[in-house]
Design a protein around this nucleic acid. Structure first.
Lengths: 341, 341
DNA sequence: GCTTGTTATGAAAGCGCTTCCATTTGCAGT
DNA sequence: ACTGCAAATGGAAGCGCTTTCATAACAAGC
């Protein structure tokens, strides 16, 4: 009977009050001993520590967050977790913030504006101290919510992009510059029929526009193959099989895939189509993913330091918390010439 | 002056009380209107909705969590986010749980037992309703904490593994079976000198032991190349360059890399070493990552449905919440024979 | 010896919600 | 007309902490 009760009715975990009682002190003192030990006399402190340990006390951070109005949480909103291109950014972010005692709340928008809005509401309800976005909000309502939250003291960080009118702080690079550089690289090899392959998110669009402009100014042709993001390697192959890739793309002699994942998929397509890389067509990717170094031919790519973006975002957040003013950071990019073009 | 104050002193966001006052109802009614609208008269409900909208009210879920003792949070503890092999599991988990209003708290252990413990304490302090682990806890203290939390009503889910003594529920597959199957596959092709490449986590060790046993029973030789996890594609190449790969591995005629990422790295190494795949040596990976389909030769692999693991974990969690008993789930595995062996 | 300061501790008041238990109202049933 | 019951609403308590302010004890300074 008692046993059955124990199974159904979970034992409540120890509270600060239990620790305090066991140590023979008040709740406040127990709280202090755990958060600012230097303010508590050594013997008292040790008694409290012993009591906490013996009870297996785990502080209820939810209650703490409510009382102190500091949640200790950072929200990360990313298009999709499956796209490994953002993983290093999250990694850079966590390394720094975890050490400071922050927890990461993660959500995916799935490149969908409506879903982004839902997910964002859920995140903001948790009262994070900061929100890190990959890119900018996709819809006006989202932007409005974020702006309001920012006014309310939350730190809003847009990454992988340097918007003309950022909500708060931004850490990224010049996506237009990337498009121009890719075109210049290809044109510099004498390629004249340029193709572009990318998602339909705003960053990819910015790259495409700059890419096309650069091509046209040089009197070269430029065609775009756009995807409903997220597009995997297989999606590119699938699109080819289904005949939905723009024909100009397969005829191009220079292709910029604005994500290494797309580039590797395109490599497979070109191989199937019997086009030699880089002899018949040059291929350049974006992101410098590990995979690009292991395919044959090794992928020329525009390297973006995703880890650094995350690290800088964390620094910016921390600086803001300390009340410092924070501007934008541009992590830049580098063309890594390898075998594919 | 006022301006300066406005900049420093953030405007507090609207509370339920503000909404209630504006709508001319009590706090309780406002709360109900938002959470169980059917219990509130239509006109009242609409007035409250209008008030909430006009104030840009975002419910404080932290306060809600404290009051209701339901945090609406699921914690995910994974070795590293950079290893894309787990991304699909998180994806499967989120798709289901996000729809139910749960948020995902994410943390990395970095394959380090001490760090795991720290991170776990931070997670449990947030009083998640469930914890999803990739694998099992790495240390006894971690296991103890989880067991206590489980007794306290939290749902603990171990994944990618089917431990003999699970803490609570487990969703995974038979890692030993995978090792045996890989060996059988290689032996079936007449390969006699088998090599194994994997991390030093418990799952990889289980695979290695079964792999070796199967090899030895068939009278074949088996050597292991172990890595301090996490190992990237580049780490494998680097190990080769540094000469720290066991020599037997390069001489093997059949290699099982217990992660596609390692397998692709090994493919590069074998290419550099002038060994032809699959003629001189067969190579088989694990995980069926997209990349395996795009390298040349295409990678034979043991496919694990990571997404399904995540989905089943979410289902198990939900079932537990409803008070149902939940056993273990085995998602199994399939050998996908492609070109590499 | 009295103020002044410093150190160590505690009491009380919330944080913004939800839960539990009234209370009020309207209307069917007899 | 009176009870009984459901539907709609509100009052009060409290979730487990932190914060602010008060108190106690004791050393130092004139």
């Amino acid at each position: 009977m008692d046993y059955a009760v124990a199974m159904t009715d979970p034992a409540p975990s120890a509270r600060l009050e239990d620790v305090a009682r066991l140590a023979g002190v008040s709740i406040v003192t127990a709280s202090r001993a755990l958060r600012q030990p230097e303010k508590v006399a050594v013997p008292t402190r040790e008694r409290i520590a012993a009591a906490a340990a013996s009870l297996g006390y785990v502080p209820n951070l939810v209650a703490g967050a409510l009382a102190s109005a500091r949640s200790g949480v950072i929200a990360v909103l990313l298009p999709t977790i499956t796209s490994s291109i953002f993983a290093s950014t999250i990694d850079g972010l966590t390394q720094k913030l975890e050490a400071e005692g922050y927890a990461i709340l993660m959500a995916q928008s799935g490149y969908d504006a409506t879903r982004e809005q839902h997910v964002l509401t859920a995140l903001l309800g948790r009262r994070p101290e900061g929100v890190v976005l990959i890119g900018s909000p996709m819809s006006e309502p989202s932007r409005t919510m974020l702006a309001a939250a920012s006014r309310g003291g939350m730190v809003v960080i847009e990454t992988w992009e340097l918007p003309a009118d950022p909500i708060d702080v931004a850490v990224g690079f010049d996506n237009g510059g990337v498009g121009t550089a890719a075109a210049a690289h290809l044109l510099g090899q004498g390629r004249r029929e340029l193709g572009f392959l990318g998602g339909n998110d705003s960053r990819a669009r910015t790259r495409w526009q700059a890419f096309r402009r650069a091509a046209e100014q040089a009197g070269a042709v430029a065609v775009a193959g756009e995807f409903a993001a997220p597009a995997t390697m297989d999606d590119v192959v699938e699109a080819h099989r289904a005949g939905t890739l723009p024909p100009g793309l397969l005829a191009a002699d220079g292709i910029f895939a604005s994500n290494d994942v797309h580039a590797v998929g395109m490599l497979s397509v070109l191989r199937q189509a019997g086009r030699r890389v880089p002899d018949d067509v040059a291929l350049i990717g974006l992101g410098d993913l590990a995979i690009g170094r292991h395919v044959v031919p090794a992928l020329t790519t525009i390297a973006i330091d995703g880890y650094e973006i995350g690290r800088l975002a964390a620094c910016a957040f921390l600086a803001r918390r300390r009340g410092e003013a924070v501007g934008h950071s541009d992590v830049g990019f580098t063309i890594l010439r390898r075998e594919s073009g």
